[in-house]
Structures are given as C-alpha cells and as structure tokens.
Amino acid sequence: MADKKINKRDIAKLPNEWCREFSVLVPSRESGTVAMTRWDGKDIGFLDWYRNTVVPPRDSFLPLIEEMFSFYKDKDGYNIELPPPKEQKQLIFGIRPCDARALAILDMTFNDGYQDPYYLGRRQNTVLVGIGCTKAYDSCFCTSLGNSPTDTTGVDLMLTDIGEDFLVEAITDAGKELLTTSSLSKATEADQARAKVSEETARQKVTRNIDIRDIAQKLRASFEDQDFWQKVAAKCISCGICTLLCPTCYCFDINDEMSKAQGVRCRSLDSCSFPIYTRMPMENPRTEKWRRVRNKVCHKYEFYPMLFDAIACTGCGRCIRLCPVNWDIIQIIESVPTGA
C-alpha cells in the first residue's frame, strides 16, 4: 500500500496547496450556521469542533438558488443567455462519509435518463476529500445503512484520524493527483493498524440502530395503513427542514425572476412537506400531512430502492437533529407494521 500520512499540525498545508488549483471549501461557522465555506487560508479550527455541517455539502452541487439562464426581450423576440460554462474546479475538504455517499445516491437521479448539466457539471468539476468521523451525534445512524464513519464511498481522498496524524488514502485517480504535495510522509504498517482501530472506535460511537431488512416491502404493505401514518405524522408541523437539509433530497421548483422584458430563470429547492408542493388547479392529492409524511418516508425507503436499488438515506441524522418537534425517522422505520 502506498498510503501517506500528515501530522495534524501541518494540515493547513493541504488546502493551502490545493487552493492554487481549486476553489477549496471547508467546514466553517462563519455564515452563522455550519456550512462548507471558502477556505480562508488559515482557520483549521474546525478539526476540533466539527462533527458535520448543518447545510449538507449537496449545496455545492444542487444549490439553494441555481440561475439556469437569463433572458431578455428585444424587437426580434426573446433571447436566452446561458451561464458561463465552467467555473473554477472545486475541492471540498472535510466532507463526511455519509454526505459523500449521499452524492453517489444523488448521481443516480441526475445521471439517469436525463443528464442534468448543472449538477453533473459541478460533480465532474469537484474533488471530494473526506475526513472520517471520530465522534458521532446522538442522531447518527449510518452504520445501520451499510455505511460507516470512515466509509470511502464517493470520496476521492480519505483522511483517517490516527492520533497525531491523519492517514491519507487515495481512493480514485483524482485523489492520487492530490498526493503530489510534499507535506506528506509515508504511512507505516503501524499507521494502517491504527486506522483500523480508529475505524472500529468510531463505529462504536454510533449508538442508534435500525433494522432495515425488508423495509421496502413493509412500507409497500402498509401504504394504505392510514391509522399508522396519521399517528406518526401527528406532531409534524410541515416545515421543510428535514427535506431542504437532507443530503439526498433533490426536489426543486423553477421560477422566473423577472422585471419588464428581462429576467433570470431560477431553480430552487422545494419540499414535499409543503402542502402546495402537489397543488394542482383542481385538486391536491396530499392535502393531509400524513400523506406528505408517508411520501417522504416512502420516497427514501421504498421508491428509491425500487428505482435505483439503493436506500436514499445515509443515516446522517440531520432530519432528526434539526427537527423542531423531534420527529424521528428511526422510530418511524422501526414501527412500520409488518403488514401481515
């Protein structure tokens, strides 16, 4: 194995070096919440406090506001101007394994029959450097979904905490290219062993578990169980937190922001928790909140597996942790009737 390592004290050298070629994003509290923010050249304080961001890194690919194109009208009719094709290459430093995996899940939708140029453009233009977790939130449940706090799915380069140092492991070719920096030394076999221990310790810290065996079938069988869904939806207040901040949610709405004869067509995230999400001229199939709650759960644990053979949940726990009423998807999944 050709793995490398870097002393934690030197960690700032990595983004400093990378930012010559990339626009480097790191976890930061600067905006007032925890989000991936442009690297300012020095602050690696996040290594001490960072567990995960509030705003998922999905935001760098499917942003809250996407300007799709601008348009204006002149005497010959409407003209359309596309945004400049290529932005500077991005590097996200410190993405958590659950969020990296979430991007792999989103790829299934955006890289399917329809190839979304906005999302894919950024995906192809971005390198992901993951940092394995050493501590978990009490809302984390990644291990139940075949994930782990040090999983490398979706990342290009992975850093694992081994005490004084980080073990640096290239996962993809793009990751290998990042290893040219001189700040790295060669990892020993003892370091590899330490990484194994660290991985196991991190795993132990994830305390919440769910049993997802046959969950899609169970959900299908209880789809019409109105009593069950009404019960689990009772305390939901139909806000958009659990969807808008979910790393695998991707529903969007398209609006024109215009004045007079010119404007911008914007794509912004939408949420199936909102009653107007499905409102149509004559009817709304999801006026009652239990139908919306059911849709949200089933989309992740039944429909997505049906379409792509993958559960659209990575166990990041944001929907539980940020929910104003502590609506807990783990409890919902656990209590789905067997449908017998």
């Binding site: 007032g32 705003v55 806000c239 958009g240």
Partner: peptide, 28 residues
C-alpha cells in the same frame, strides 16, 4: 441582511408559530 442570507425558506418559524394560522400564507 447578513442573517437572512442563510435563510433556506423552510418556513419552520411560521409553522412552529401558533399565531401563524392562515390557511393560505401570503408567500404562497
């Protein structure tokens, strides 16, 4: 301005508020 720049329009503030009970909110 700076504080509202990070608003994601989840409407949790509105929906958690018992005083906000309009059937149809003006934002819609």
């Amino acid at each position: 301005k700076k504080e509202l720049e990070r608003c994601i329009r989840c409407y949790a503030c509105r929906n958690a508020c018992p005083a906000c009970y309009c059937q149809r909110c003006f934002v819609e």
